[in-house]
Amino acid sequence: MTTTLDGTANRALTLGLPARLSLTPKTTLAGRLDGAWWPRSRDLAAELPALADALEGRWGRITRVLVNPAHWPVVPHKVAVTGHLLHVGWFTEQDPDKIILLSYTTGRCDLLVIPPETEPASAARLLTAAALPGSTLAAGSLMSGEAATSRRIREARNGEDAWESEGGAAPAPQPHPVMHSAAHPVVGARMIPLPEHTGR
């Protein structure tokens, strides 16, 4: 996807695509989030129509959106969506990883906003975690938790790559959980065969 200097995506590539979205199932368990949204760009004018359309069946007509401008280069005052105008406001006090959508009929919908450049595996984990009913995790907590998870996965992968680059076929040796973490297997040691059992 091509990107302009102000960070907005080429709208021709974004418009008309369905919103990438997960919503909590209908339940009496109220959580801090109602799901997650993974936009394809940081262009609100291009991304909001598909989101509003996707939410209309469950939340009714979305009339107002609130964002933190930290992750959005341009925050338009109004965005044309199917059949009406969507009013957009911003607050620097709002969690930058969250978007709030307001509807006259159903009330308020709070969604985690997954950055467009997020790797698909990481985005899938966030889409699932944000849609858990009754979760008390805030948007910022989910993002920082996922950052830590992604970092551990990268470190583990880099360890395997280093082992394979040295000609090993098995995974890199891990220290024994009971032994000191500085303990390492002895390199170059050979196995001494045991004498065969003769049955005597």
Rank of each mutant, 00 (worst) to 15 (best):
L48T: 05
L48M: 04
P49T: 10
P49E: 09
P49A: 06
P49N: 07
A50L: 02
A50E: 00
L51T: 05
L51A: 02
L51G: 00
L51W: 03
A52V: 00
D53R: 08
D53S: 14
A54G: 01
A54P: 01
A54H: 03
A54C: 02
A54R: 02
A54S: 04
L55C: 13
E56P: 02
E56R: 15
E56M: 10
G57I: 01
R58L: 02
R58Y: 02
R58W: 02
R58M: 03
R58D: 02
R58K: 12
W59Y: 15
W59N: 05
G60A: 11
G60S: 10
G60V: 06
G60F: 04
G60D: 11
R61M: 12
R61N: 09
R61C: 06
R61S: 14
R61Y: 06
I62R: 06
I62Y: 09
I62M: 12
I62T: 14
I62W: 08
T63A: 03
T63S: 03
T63M: 00
R64G: 07
V65S: 03
V65I: 09
V65D: 05
V65A: 06
L66R: 14
V67L: 14
V67T: 13
V67D: 12
N68W: 14
N68Q: 12
N68I: 03
P69W: 05
P69H: 10
P69L: 10
A70K: 15
A70H: 14
H71W: 15
H71R: 15
W72L: 11
P73W: 09
P73T: 07
P73K: 10
P73F: 10
V74W: 06
V74Q: 12
V74M: 09
V75M: 11
V75L: 11
P76E: 02
P76S: 08
P76W: 08
H77I: 05
H77A: 15
K78F: 13
K78M: 08
K78I: 07
V79A: 12
V79W: 11
A80I: 09
V81R: 02
V81E: 08
V81W: 06
